[in-house]
Amino acid sequence: MEHLNDKPAWTLARNPMGRLVWTGADGIEQVGVVPVRAFPLGAPDEGLSLVSPDGHELVWIDSLDAVAEPARALIAEELALREFVPEIVRLVGVSTFSTPSTWTVETDRGATTFVLKAEEDIRRLTGSALLIASAHGIAFRIHDRFGLDRASRRLLERFL
């Protein structure tokens, strides 16, 4: 295993099938590597690994900003493909103030509705951030609950 601060001699590319290929300092290629964040919600750009298909860490990266292009862009693309966490920017309405309830929201990716099964499916993160899990397993994030508009905050407070 290499450590980024040890000035590793590795490269990252995408093969014709769209899979990431990591080539180590020894010239050995690993096809199908996966970037994995250590702290995906609390510090998404700090602490991530490139992991081989068999689950072994190939390289530890302290900060994505420390990775040179084009490897940084490839890692960011792969993470975006794997991580789908829309951010709620406004609560439009809820069907009832008890659970389960259907929420209608506006996200950074468009309007949607989802079912909140239980109040326990709303998790508090660092600061004023929240993570809300829908009945179908999709995670929605609220970056700053206090930054929402007044009507959205009122609806949300009924569940916190």
Rank of each mutant, 00 (worst) to 15 (best):
E78V: 05
P100A: 05
S49E: 02
D121C: 11
G127K: 10
F97M: 08
S63F: 07
A129F: 06
L41Q: 09
G110S: 06
E69C: 11
R72Y: 05
L125F: 02
V89E: 10
A43F: 12
G27F: 07
T113N: 11
S98D: 09
Q30C: 14
V89G: 04
V94P: 04
V34R: 14
L48A: 08
A76L: 15
V34M: 12
H56A: 06
V115K: 07
E69K: 13
V105C: 04
E77K: 11
G32D: 06
E57C: 06
R124Y: 15
P40K: 09
S128H: 14
G47R: 08
G47S: 12
V31M: 06
F114T: 02
T104C: 08
T99C: 15
L58Q: 01
L91V: 15
I132S: 02
V59D: 00
D62Q: 10
T104F: 12
R37Q: 15
E78N: 13
D26A: 11
L116S: 03
E77H: 13
V94M: 08
D108Q: 02
P86M: 01
D65F: 08
V36Y: 08
W103S: 04
I61M: 05
A13V: 09
E83V: 14
V33G: 01
D62T: 06
E46F: 11
P40Q: 09
G24E: 05
N15Q: 12
P35A: 09
R19Y: 08
L131S: 14
T102A: 13
T112R: 11
A111S: 12
I75M: 10
V51D: 04
D65V: 02
P16M: 00
G42F: 05
V51M: 12
L20H: 08
R37D: 13
E106F: 08
P86D: 00
M17G: 14
L125K: 03
R124T: 15
L74G: 06
E57Y: 00
A129W: 05
E106I: 10
L64K: 03
S52D: 10
F39P: 00
I88M: 06
R123S: 14
R82F: 11
P86R: 01
L50W: 07
I28A: 12
L41M: 11
L91G: 10
G42Y: 04
P100W: 06
Q30V: 13
G32L: 09
G32Y: 07
A25N: 13
F39R: 15
I88S: 03
L91N: 08
T23F: 05
I88D: 03
D26Y: 03
E106N: 13
A129E: 05
A129H: 04
P100N: 05
A43L: 13
V59T: 04
P70C: 10
V36G: 07
A13R: 14
P16A: 00
P16F: 00
L74K: 07
V31Q: 05
F84I: 10
R123E: 15
D121F: 11
A118P: 02
V36N: 09
L125M: 11
G55Q: 02
E46Q: 12
M17V: 14
R90I: 01
T23A: 03
K117D: 09
E29D: 12
L116T: 02
P86I: 01
T99Q: 13
S49F: 07
